[in-house]
Design a protein around this nucleic acid. Structure first.
Lengths: 226, 226, 226, 226
DNA sequence: AATGAATGAGGCTTCATTCAT
DNA sequence: AATGAATGAAGCCTCATTCAT
């Protein structure tokens, strides 16, 4: 249990199918609301959070900007919902992966696949997180984003260290540094990845797994230590 | 000469210490102006382009906001100068690297080093490019950014293909895809890299070169083809 | 129908009391909006378009300047509405006059009366058109003003030529030139005409019609040709 | 003597070829200064006084805007010079005309010719007076414009009344009203008159004189009283 | 005579948000 | 659940003018 705690539906277990409800003043869940969030997410992704006006969101929904405030109490609340929905899903998937008990290399591969696998269903949210993170983190209300990021980092670093201990990964790399590079490589792909290109996200994942584990070079590895 | 043509002073050879001059309406160079650009770059990097007000830039310089317009004709002109200065320098360095005539693997290593090597001197510009690219590219005036990016991509992809042809790089990876992953890994590091940490940029570069060429795994490479 | 096409609601027949509606982005009609336009027109007339600030308009209406933008998307949109409302009315009146089938001299007299007759109800708009035309025509959005002016010119010139053909007007005057002089004499009167003076606009019209047709001189006409 | 008194070179008789000198702080006369005034006049005429920036004037002269203040102490001083130069010339010409001792009709004809005759040499100034009069008259410094206008009005009205007394002009027109209509017809022509068209200013004048004295109609005059 | 830098006031506009209906 | 009107703060930018050099 526990772990990543977004400000939305914290304690909610992955299995509990309880009615989704928010603990905050951001208002009750509803189909209309979810729809509005989706519209907003697309706009945030395309134009950036700051450059997207509440009027544009309202226009997209065919209502007046003031009417949005029946559903959300602020623009921040909307983006909050966009991001936390994504993070909740991501963390849940990671938990499943590390719970499988597979060896570190297999687990890490799976986690890479999970990462690339979110690129399509959560494209908008990931884009927002990449582009507007620097701005949003200034606000206290988004502190939970940092917390979620920290937990994810721990999960990854633990796997890398386990792999080094098991002799599957080379010992001369820095686990934390390595994690960051992997993470960045995956998420930043959202900037150029477009569904329908040569590779789908599965192909992307396998391509990256290959390079990540075996390297770009041919022949014997240059330097190595047990 | 030629190649990447930013809207500023691209053609300028790296060796020619000719008087600095701009070809466009962005205004003439001057020490004062350069200083203001530097101040602005720091603010843009810290707060984001949109979230930085011209008043803040002016405050930082100890003048009134309107006085900025004696030097620049718009806020965009300032960020333009921040970005193009960086790109000019970057492209110049790449050109030197590929002009050395070394083998592809050495050249690619050098290019990775160049990339990480810009992290400190151009930290602000790179941060802006990472965070505000999505917003800025909406404006026609920044089309040159895309052009510069394209030329850089060609330089990299050519090296990767040359390495594959020479048998130095595995043939089963996609050159373009591989370039993008390398590129992203390097630039995104600006988000977490802080001078004075465990590794300096040289260390970062060597660490990444190791993983990039030899992979994270130990033992024999999984799949391989000549 | 047809003819002068202001960017607002030109095609609207004079008899059809259809709901007032605008075809463009200048915003929907409303009583509040019309009231604001009226206030603005007075200020534009008194101080000139450029010298009138949106703050002054807002002050006059008892709201904040930003609130004006709930109704109009720019200061230009406001003056646009002022001018096009006048032109729509004017052209409609001219059309009625030329549709009466009277002889050219009677028709022309009627048109002179129409011109002077707009001096009071459209005083502000005419003043703006006289004083700020030169400035406003620089903007593409006001091209329709020129078009409306051209149609009006055609209407007048046609009547003058018809009068010459019918032998009612002397043949040795230039129709276009004569039109312009008549037009200018009428509109420029807005600069000095004040309701409540010795002559009302009807008196003004008759005075001008006298001089226009019969001349200032006494006795026989100087030169004449059939 | 005396009469129109512009704020510039007041008492200066038309015959005294004394060195031109200004009584005010607007600075001494000089060729450079006159050139700048001419450049400014063109811009004022084309764009309007308010819409013309001192920077544009300076650009046109190839200097920086601040440097203009070595020649003039304000933007108003420049337009002042433009207008007063024109008025001085105009009044001088009128004085010559009324000093000839000819009969009223001849004198009035001559004055019409004088008016149209200034259209070319003083095109810019007349345009400014037509378009920016309403704005400029707000400033106390331009009170002399109103004074000049009043004196000119007296000259005209006196001639019209003399013509009526002599039986040359019909008695049933209002002298002041008639003057205004003549005046407006002449000056407003600056808006559409372009040198090189079908008629030059002499032709324009004769055309107008014909219509003015004999009217547009053919045959006998409608109503007439001794 | 002119430059180059800056001032200071103010202009138009944007936009998240509120609130009575 | 939504409208329509307005707020209030702030944003970018303009421009006549000043002044030391």
């Amino acid at each position: 249990m526990g772990g990543v705690t977004t400000r939305k539906n914290s304690g909610q277990s992955t299995t509990a199918p309880a009615k989704r409800q928010r603990a905050t003043s951001s208002g009750p869940a509803s189909e209309r609301r979810d729809h509005l969030v989706k519209l907003a997410a697309e706009l945030f992704a395309r134009k950036g959070f700051q450059a997207t006006t509440v009027r544009e969101i309202a226009d997209e929904a065919g209502i007046l900007s003031g009417s949005l405030y029946h559903h959300f109490d602020s623009k921040e609340t909307i983006v909050d919902e966009v991001l936390s929905t994504f993070l909740d899903d991501l963390v849940a998937r990671y938990r499943t992966a590390i719970g499988s008990g597979a060896d570190p290399r297999s687990t890490l591969s799976e986690m890479v696949r999970i990462g690339f696998g979110t690129l399509e269903p959560h494209r908008a949210a990931i884009t927002v997180m990449q582009n507007d993170w620097n701005y949003l983190r200034q606000f206290e209300r988004f502190n939970y984003l940092v917390k979620a990021e920290d937990e994810v980092e721990q999960i990854w670093v633990a796997q890398i260290k386990a792999g080094q201990a098991a002799g599957q990964f080379r010992a001369d790399v820095d686990p934390k540094l390595t994690y960051r590079m992997i993470r960045d490589t995956i998420w930043v792909a959202v900037r150029w990845f477009r569904p329908g290109g040569r590779l789908n996200t599965t192909g992307l994942a396998e391509h990256y797994i290959t390079v990540l584990f075996d390297g770009l070079a041919t022949g014997e590895r240059t330097s190595q230590q047990a």
